[in-house]
Amino acid sequence: MLTMKNVSKVFKTDNIQTHALRDFSLTVNEGDFVSVTGPSGSGKTTFLNIAGLLETFSSGDFLLDDISIQQLNDRQRSKIRNEKIGFIFQSFNLIPDLNLFDNVDVPLRYRGFNAKERKQRIEHNLDMVGLASRMKHLPSQLSGGQQQRVAIARALATDPRFLLADEPTGNLDTQMAQSVMSLLEDINKQGTTIVMVTHDNDLANRASRKIQIKDGRVSELDVVVANSQAIA
């Protein structure tokens, strides 16, 4: 479903060029659970941002569901983010001014669902993460783990086929991290493709595919699913 070929990302400051990604190529198939590891500054986040259509890239090809991303304008990219991709962040990124219901509502609004549909989806997803009873609370009234579960509910509310997680457990203690991880595994089993950046090897090993990024290049560490392929 996701194909990157020779994607490069170059940051230019006044007189220095930094290659965040260099001829990066990767294919992710429908139903994969890919974990991405690598040292700090290796380009993990850049890869995730490009995969999530949050950032543009300098050269190469990137196809998502056979659509070439490079020619799309801001509106088209926003639409794809909204419809196909769900995001989970290390720092949860809930909107502090909005209660849980309204937080989950945000992507549904951009999707243009009617009020009934939105309400039903919000309740369903909050229920799934076990927080339906606290719908009217503000994020600041929740623990870190609860906040991340709300963020997951929000990411799943639009039924994305592709979930991007950036250190989803980075700000959580071990126990909470385990429960969030189990939740992600359940979601994957139901058919959602997940790409998760993490620095925790134990968590990374629970994924069906594990890749490592080093100096902006990718290397496949351990092929669990036979039909995935990597071009190193």
């Binding site: 801001d74 509106r75 983010r81 909204n82 990124n93 909107i95 945000v106 992507p107």
Partner: peptide
């Protein structure tokens, strides 16, 4: 700014 970044991630275009 953080909220705006997040809304973009969740599918808001610049126009919206």
């Amino acid at each position: 700014a953080p909220e705006i970044g997040l809304r973009q991630a969740l599918g808001a275009s610049r126009r919206t």
